[in-house]
Write a protein that binds this DNA or RNA. Structure first.
Lengths: 130, 130
DNA sequence: TTGTAAATGTTATATTATTACATACCGTTA
DNA sequence: TAACGGTATGTAATAATATAACATTTACAA
């Protein structure tokens, strides 16, 4: 069983927005969308984002500076993330392949270093854009 | 044999700097370092960086917004990159494991999508920081 | 030698993210 | 319940990263 994280007010507002969007959102677009709810400053957004990333409710798509809700709803894999990104339409999907995650989690580099975390971003054209 | 890219003046100045550094450099730190050579504006730096990334002479470390010279000197793998990043000292190494690159280049997701490119960043503690 | 793609120069501005400081909230435990 | 500590919030200012728009120059193949 996972630890339950009770989201604070701002965290909940921002998580709900990103979750409903179903696609990556950028910080200032989030800010714009939550201003009517009383969140007025970038820092309020970034603080909530930091926390949500930390507890695995959302992930940052590093190559896009954007945030997407975790699509592996019940299993918080915030330390082993993989995404597919369409270079045409920018659609992003989280990849949940236990084979892939096992392979990468067990990967050891030539110096014998083992890793506690990874992030993988695949690029290509999605079904619709091909 | 690879295609030879003759670097332009700015590209060469900036590549040499990054290459000598042997570690990731940020755009504005690069700018600061090349001002004495006549490169005065951010855009001049970013244009050179874009080109160098495109031809595989450098890679962007997405999670750090920084650029490092390709360490696989002769084989330009700019479409299949993997790095190890120490979360303590920020040391970054390029991983060149043909097994890993084969595995990832051939990876197909559940929808049958195959990818033309990937970037993988591993995190952990390096030998010195452990 | 001329057409064209690539590269350069310059100014301004957009976008992304953090620092610093003050205050409020919430659960624990003395 | 009062005091404490950790977490969250509010606000203003600013730092850091990146691009737009436009003018000009260079490299080089046709």
């Amino acid at each position: 069983m996972q630890k339950q994280h009770n989201l604070s007010k701002n965290q909940k507002i921002i998580f709900d927005l990103i979750d409903k969007a179903g696609e990556p959102m950028k910080a200032y677009s989030i800010l714009f969308n939550v201003q009517k709810k009383g969140i007025k400053a970038p820092l309020q957004v970034y603080r909530a984002l930091d926390k949500l990333v930390e507890i695995g409710k959302i992930h940052k798509i590093e190559s896009r500076n954007a945030f997407i809700a975790c699509q592996n709803s019940n299993c918080q894999i915030s330390k082993a993330t993989a995404f597919s990104i369409c270079e045409n339409c920018e659609k992003v999907s989280e990849i949940s392949s236990s084979k892939l995650s096992k392979y990468l989690s067990n990967f050891v580099d030539h110096s014998g270093m083992k890793f506690s975390k990874y992030n993988l971003e695949f690029f290509g054209l999605c079904k619709n854009c091909k």
